[in-house]
Simulated scan of single mutants.
Amino acid sequence: MTQPVDAKPGSGYVPSVSRVASMRDRSGFLPLGEYLTNKDAARFLQVTPRTLRNWDRAETLTPRRYPINGYRLSRREDLKALLEQVDRGSGPSRAR
């Protein structure tokens, strides 16, 4: 049973992995507006998703949680600000 991508929230419809993958825009990111998934945010910052989870635990970067599944979502502006901190030498280290 295939439902359209614009299925109503709460309808119980969960798109398949291949359907979600086909929704990625030309830059390779999911179309979530100003938010990036943990995987996309890691790619944006050029770190691993595990590093982002560690920064979340250390409260270096505090992502929001998607209310339905609890996935981490980071705002692009927050990630850009973190990159600027790293460039100035006041943010977390990218390499270990």
Rank of each mutant, 00 (worst) to 15 (best):
A7Q: 07
S18L: 14
R57V: 14
L61T: 04
R72P: 00
N38H: 01
P15S: 11
P63S: 08
P49M: 12
E77H: 08
L52Q: 02
Q3P: 01
L73Q: 10
P92L: 04
A42R: 06
R50H: 07
L45K: 10
P92K: 07
V20K: 06
F44Y: 13
Y71K: 08
K8R: 13
R26Y: 04
L73D: 00
F29Y: 15
L61I: 15
Y35L: 15
P49T: 06
P63D: 07
T60E: 07
R76I: 15
V47C: 10
K8L: 14
R96D: 11
L61R: 03
E77L: 10
Q85D: 14
L82Y: 08
S18H: 11
V5R: 14
T60P: 00
Q3T: 11
L45W: 02
E34F: 01
L30V: 03
L32A: 07
A21Q: 13
D25S: 07
G12R: 05
G10W: 06
L52I: 11
T48F: 01
A95L: 14
A42S: 10
P67E: 12
S11Y: 05
D87H: 13
D87C: 06
R24K: 15
A7L: 03
S16Y: 06
L61G: 06
Y66V: 02
E77F: 03
P15L: 02
R72A: 09
L61K: 04
Q46F: 00
P4Q: 11
R26V: 10
T60W: 11
R75M: 15
D6T: 04
S74G: 01
K39D: 11
L79Q: 06
K8H: 11
R24E: 05
E34A: 13
E34I: 09
S18Q: 14
K8G: 04
K80C: 04
W55E: 09
